[in-house]
Design a protein around this nucleic acid. Structure first.
Lengths: 335, 335
DNA sequence: TTTTTTAATGCAAGCGGTTTCGTTAATTTC
DNA sequence: GAAATTAACGAAACCGCTTGCATTAAAAAA
């Protein structure tokens, strides 16, 4: 029924091995036969069976992308589709497919990742999050499968691509200072996420460099990553008279905050946050300036690092790459 | 190096075929040997090679999820991660993996889908969008691979899961009418998207049922799906004095509009829009009421329909399912 | 011209499973 | 107790491709 390599071989009058070599574009096949065989492949509408290829060559031509637990609030973040786009973009050169991790519970997720890496379904892994003591990452590292994580995990022996969160946090804070803000609060989130901590560090450095005193109670950290959290914070919890500036570590939270401020008709507080890309789409992006995180770049860089790692396999001793992409201040017109 | 079925067979003192059958949990193997073999599999940390399985059984245990062109504005919509979650959810029972389509151009996308379906990498397909004259969908249908599309395409011979957009549009409009709005505009978007048209139809029906006249120039349709579009519309293009209600077909556009209205301090216009799920996260969801689209359900329903189709293969004549999930009015407290 | 290289292709053994069919031993039936 | 089933498992072919090695013809060197 389905056309195989033998059919192509027969019709082109060559051996199956020759066909296989023209598939791989091997240099040891003459241009003439290549063309002849390719013509037949096209006539017969032949496509190589990926499973057979994978079995014979021990390469699946697909990489696994590991998402966080679906119930995690963080999952909702525009960050994810954006990195995914970057990954897609980076892969357009290399003829690989993307396998998405799945599972509703952490146990399911762990089982699934075991199955796909031991079962040779994937040649490499990209983690789209970094959290503490992640059993999935532990597993990945224990198998030596090429892995890169987008974000900064609590492990050293792995490739990493992340925003330069400290610098970015400083950059944002500097902007507010330069705009004349005197009392700047830092609205963070889950302190188990390293980027929250790092941006806070940048905030702190900016204050110090400008001879401002860093105050513990100017830091707000006890909530998740939802816009409702930001909204609630403003509406109920925070003493707004204290501040004239907010550095908000997460875009969703910032959305909630900005809406709450608008509703309360508060204009003396300037805010700044971080968005996945220029012209962030989840918000009208008219009002406030922000830092563009180049999130798509995160994805495409992760891909190239991963492929370097896949190609170079175990030649020479392993070196781990840490790549930090910078942010870009996008200043909005005042209204 | 890697442990194979033979190693397991040898150590358990049975034939490879027996091991294969315990993997498949075949009823023709005694409970005793099953347990014995499973114990060995565990000891040896054995995982079946997915490529070998796929080759031998002609089943890859993975489904393909087809995304729209990445450059498409529509891609940015919170809709996608949400359906994806639903798909993930639906798959947690069935031990399959998800392969994501890729490609930066439509040509690349077409090549990739050809490769994965002809190459037997996937057993079924879920389209996450429906657009006119889609060559990818045409291809899928030409191969008879089980396929379901989330959204309503211009084809009949395919399984479909979608929102009941007409009813939803009516529901939204009814709400505004009931709230006393007299002059309701419909803010749509790309009319090539069927859901825009269908929600418009619902809007129209609601007006008629309430003896309102439907006016062409109350319909705004010439823009994409970005919040900036909504923002611009309000700031520059529309005569706000004409209206006291907006039915907004897309959430992102609604965000832009709502922010613009807030900035302009306009309060006499009531808006309603549609969101992927309850407590939409891309917006503080405090202000305006909306229709919850149950988008996650769309994904999980798509999965079950797909698996029904995969299982039943070609038994009996093919019937095509069209499933429409309803919306739910979520009324927000007025502030 | 003869010998040595090189270029181009074929042969056949895997890769690691699944599955049909056959075999053997244990049960059941009469 | 012999014949007929049935239950449980093994042997081996096969899935479609890759790749090391052998082979042959052509080109280069001698």
């Amino acid at each position: 029924m389905t056309v195989t390599i033998k059919d192509v071989a027969k019709k082109s009058g060559v051996a199956p091995s020759t066909v296989s070599r023209v598939i791989a574009d091997s240099p040891s096949i003459s241009q003439a036969t290549k063309e002849k065989v390719r013509k037949v492949m096209h006539e017969l509408n032949y496509f190589p069976n990926a499973n057979a290829q994978g079995l014979a060559s021990n390469r699946s031509k697909t990489i696994g992308v590991i998402l966080p637990l679906a119930s995690d609030a963080f999952y909702q973040n525009p960050f994810f589709p954006t990195v995914l786009r970057g990954i897609n973009f980076g892969m357009s050169k290399v003829d690989y497919s993307i396998l998405l991790s799945s599972g509703q519970t952490n146990e399911q997720r762990l089982n699934h990742i075991k199955k796909i890496v031991h079962g040779k379904k994937v040649e490499g892994l990209i983690f789209l999050y970094a959290s503490k003591n992640d059993p999935l990452l532990d597993f990945a590292l224990s198998t030596n499968i090429p892995t890169v994580v987008v974000g900064t995990p609590d492990k050293l022996k792995v490739h990493v691509v992340d925003n330069d969160n400290e610098t970015i946090g400083k950059q944002a804070t500097d902007y507010l200072i330069q705009k004349g803000c005197q009392n700047i609060a830092y609205i963070g989130g889950d302190m188990d996420q390293f980027f929250i901590k790092d941006r806070l560090k940048g905030y702190q450095i900016a204050l110090e460099e400008n001879n401002r005193t860093y105050k513990e109670d100017y830091i707000y950290n006890d909530f998740a990553f939802l816009s409702t959290d930001g909204y609630q914070l403003i509406k109920n919890e925070i003493d707004l008279s204290l501040y004239d500036g907010f550095v908000i570590a997460d875009e969703l939270v910032a959305n909630g905050i900005q809406q709450a401020l608008l509703e309360k008709k508060i204009t003396q507080i300037r805010t700044i946050t971080f968005k996945p890309f220029q012209q962030a789409l989840y918000h009208s992006n008219m009002g406030e300036s922000y830092i563009n995180l180049h999130t798509r770049l995160l994805g495409s860089r992760a891909v190239s690092i991963l492929f370097d790692s896949i190609e170079n396999d175990n030649k020479g001793e392993q070196r781990y790459i840490r790549e930090y992409v910078d942010g870009e201040l996008v200043v909005m017109p005042e209204f």
